[in-house]
Design a binder for these strands. Structure first.
Length: 694
DNA sequence: GCCGAATGTCATTCT
DNA sequence: CTAGAATGACATTCG
């Protein structure tokens, strides 16, 4: 999918539409409307809807208003005297002055879009009221994550997130209705949602998570009280359950959102035909024409639009396709890196903090990657902070790996505050590669400006960069010398982990989307593949130690470690399992090595014995040969002796009748053979008797 | 797709 | 009694 230059920089964007539609109570699918309505018509729409001219025309850039987050970023060159230029900040202030509540939060906007698209205008109004109250009170009031809250699994799998984003709609619609994402088999998505839920259940075990939940509940109560509007409270109750999960993210990341309606608006409007490629819209003529009918479509075709597109156009998709976002530094950079962006972005005018929809954001990466590669001259890129890729990847990873969104959000919050302090580093020059980053490329947190390796670095750095502190109080990990050494190691370690043995592979390898996404998917898979199962598990449960140190540390250090750090039962159990498995793994390796050594030794013994046997055979043969030679000599000598012997009468002695016998004293006697044979019999009998006695 | 080697893991026993 | 080593058996991965 190509990316075209948006036009939102000189428009009010979708926010205005949201306001207008909610004001008018129109049941309009904004997705469709946005395809057809250029923002220049918004003024007319305001007038058409009966807004006072001051609201319609006297709209100024945000720069002079303040307090509305990134509007100044959207309108950097805006002039307050320009009546034709719409400013969301001014507009919102005008509307608030008129008693129209609203909060320019993307997730609110997202929720609004969904609500309006689903025909639930009352809910939208309720949200507007609640959000505006909180916003006017604190300036950074709560918002609602319409995107992530809709995702039941909250996983990083785009299909999963997608299904989550469309959950509300899909539940209300016929199940046979095809979705826009053809590469998203629902069965697989549901499986992975289940896996994600398992992981979240495991991760949410953290007591800090419970604290956050309680805090969120308290804040929500106060928020409702501050509303003071009975109808709004009643309306709010409907989506309160959805809000509970993700609103804690909003509390922690209170501020401007990453994905705003302007972004969606510009995306949809700048490239409706491309968007429609991925959407099964049906045969609605207005949609197939893909032209800009503008204002007329609002009043005449809204209902049809909603029916035609509402189930297929996801705000998540639009978010993912929209790279125009504010900045976020790499999460790992906060630990040690200087704030030196390798991609230029516009520093914020205020220290706004960003929320990030925790779901589905993975898909964002390859698209942006592609865009940045192919469209280097886009003005958009000048405003694009590629660091957003980091947080998106991290968040998606966090969701995929079962990270607690609260903790990830805390990380991002820290990043933001740090970034705001170092905003001076945000130069305007595009830096494609900086040799100074090479020092960080070592280890798991390496910075690499190569976008192809982006995901992997994010993946690797995600855990080591932040996991210890929020969970396990790692500020005092230098108690023993052993920890001194491993403390630094673990920060840069690749803790990767999945609770379910088959979940990670299936998750990371299964999700796919057309185009460049395969490349990123491959990197994610590679990164995961390099990690053992226990490492992935440790990563998922935020184990603040590397598997290696868990296995190798002495038992005393191990026990002291378990007692020193605050770990949940699940974490302790996992650590013990990791240690047991690691020990057993080493033992198995040693065992096999020993077994192999034994086998090799036995083989050597066999060879040696065979060689010895052959040598003995040769020696025996030689001995037999020598014996035979000796026998032959004795025989020859025997006959020589008898040839020389003579009896008393001088006759030769017959060897058949006589035999030579050696006596004990060495003398040789000539005796008759009868005597010799009888004497032999007696000696043999004596020998037999002795053997019988023994 | 089958096969074998390498490796991980579990259960069990031994130290 | 506990931790670890040792090992058989089985499963998984990979070439």
């Amino acid at each position: 999918m190509k990316y075209l230059k948006p036009w939102w920089s000189d428009s009010g964007g979708l926010l205005h539409l949201t306001i207008l539609l909610s004001l008018a109570g129109l049941n309009v699918d904004l997705d469709v409307y946005l395809l057809l309505s250029p923002p220049t018509l918004l003024r007319d729409e305001l007038l058409l809807l009966g807004c006072p001219p001051s609201s319609a025309y006297a709209l100024s850039p945000f720069a002079a208003s303040g307090g509305w987050g990134r509007a100044g970023q959207l309108h950097p060159k805006g002039r307050e005297s320009d009546p034709a230029e719409l400013s969301e900040g001014r507009l919102l202030r005008e509307l608030c002055a008129l008693g129209v509540p609203f909060i320019p939060r993307t997730r609110v906007d997202a929720w609004l879009v969904h609500s309006v698209a689903a025909g639930d205008a009352d809910r939208a109004h309720g949200l507007l009221g609640a959000a505006a109250t909180a916003s006017s009170a604190g300036g950074v009031g709560a918002s609602v994550d319409g995107g992530s809250q809709a995702a039941p699994g909250g996983g990083g799998d785009p299909r999963e997130a997608r299904s989550g984003a469309l959950a509300t709609r899909e539940e209300e619609k016929a199940p046979a209705e095809p979705t826009a994402e053809v590469s998203n088999p629902r069965g697989r998505a549901s499986e992975e949602i289940e896996l994600q839920r398992e992981r979240h259940e495991a991760v949410n075990y953290s007591p800090q998570h419970e604290e956050n939940e309680q805090r969120v509940s308290a804040q929500e109560k106060s928020l409702q009280q501050s509303n003071g509007d009975g109808s709004n409270v009643a309306d709010t109750r409907d989506w309160e359950a959805e809000k509970t999960t993700d609103s804690r993210n909003e509390r922690q990341l209170n501020g401007t959102d990453i994905f705003c309606l302007e972004d969606l608006f510009q995306l949809l409007s700048s490239q409706p035909e491309n968007l429609l490629e991925g959407i099964s819209l049906g045969d609605t003529p207005l949609l197939s024409s893909s032209n800009y009918d503008g204002l007329n479509s609002l009043a005449t075709n809204s209902v049809n639009f909603s029916q035609a597109i509402s189930q297929d156009v996801s705000l998540h998709e639009a978010m993912l396709l929209c790279p125009n976002n504010t900045f976020r530094r790499d999460p790992v950079a906060r630990t040690s890196l200087p704030q030196e962006p390798f991609f230029q972005f516009n520093p914020p005018t205020t220290n706004t903090e960003l929320t990030l929809p925790g779901t589905n954001v993975t898909r964002f990466v390859p698209l942006v990657d592609n865009q940045m590669r192919n469209l280097p001259n886009q003005g958009l890129l000048c405003d694009l902070d590629v660091n957003i890729l980091d947080e998106i990847n991290l968040m998606s990873l966090a969701m995929e790996e079962g990270f607690d969104p609260v903790e990830v959000s805390q990380l991002f919050e820290e990043l933001d505050s740090e970034l705001s302090l170092n905003s001076s580093h945000c130069s305007t020059s595009v830096t494609t590669h900086d040799s100074s980053h090479s020092v960080y490329e070592e280890g798991a947190i390496g910075y690499n400006t190569d976008l192809e390796s982006f995901s992997q670095h994010d993946l690797e750095g995600a855990v080591g960069g932040y996991s210890p502190e929020p969970i396990c109080h790692m500020n005092h990990r230098s108690d023993s010398g052993f920890h001194e050494e491993v403390a630094l190691q673990h920060v840069f370690h690749n803790h990767t982990y999945h609770l379910h043995p088959t979940a990670p592979e299936s998750t990371s390898e299964s999700f796919s989307w057309p185009g460049k996404s395969q490349k990123v998917s491959r990197y994610v898979n590679d990164a995961d593949r390099n990690l053992s199962r226990d490492e992935r598990r440790a990563k998922a449960l935020h184990i603040p130690f590397s598997v290696d140190e868990i296995v190798r540390m002495p038992v005393d250090s191990f026990n002291s470690m378990l007692s020193r750090y605050y770990l949940t039962d699940l974490q302790v159990s996992l650590i013990r399992d990791i240690r047991r498995r690691g020990k057993n793994k080493v033992a198995a390796q040693n065992c096999r090595k020993r077994k192999l050594d034994v086998i090799l030794n036995l083989e050597d013994d066999v060879c040696n014995l065979q060689a010895r046997k052959e040598a003995l055979k040769r020696e025996r043969a030689q001995c037999n040969k020598a014996i035979n030679i000796m026998k032959q000599k004795v025989h020859d000598l025997y006959h020589d002796v008898f040839r020389l012997l003579r009896d008393d009468q001088g006759r030769p002695v017959n060897p058949n009748q006589y035999a030579l016998q050696c006596s004990h004293d060495g003398s040789v006697l000539i005796v008759p053979k009868e005597l010799v044979t009888s004497g032999h019999r007696k000696e043999n009998q004596k020998g037999k008797r002795k053997s019988e006695r023994n």
